[in-house]
Amino acid sequence: MLDPPSGVISTGGGASSAPEQYLLRLYVAGTTQRSMTAIINIRKICEEHLGGRYVLEVIDLYQQPQLANGDQIIALPTLIKKLPPPLRRIIGDLSNTEKVLVGLDLRAL
């Protein structure tokens, strides 16, 4: 089963062998199908491409609506790549893996 979405911080397993650490934040709204799909998708991508060098924070705006302004959230779900720069927002359920990888600078356009 899925973990409860809000406030979950997952870190990849191994030590920091890679040069760049990823700080990711995923905003969702409740436990809708779209939210769940986004969470599953980003976890899968992180495990496959960022093993051991990422921090993923999942925020449910239904539970913490006051957090929407700070990160300028309009569309949901929104994945924000806070680190490494440049800052990037990937909106949607993250089912388009190619686009997500481009957004995370893991694949050239």
Partner: peptide, 10 residues
């Protein structure tokens, strides 16, 4: 970037 289906719930 658009990485899948979204809405403006935010």
């Amino acid at each position: 970037l658009e990485g899948g289906s979204f809405n403006l719930e935010g």
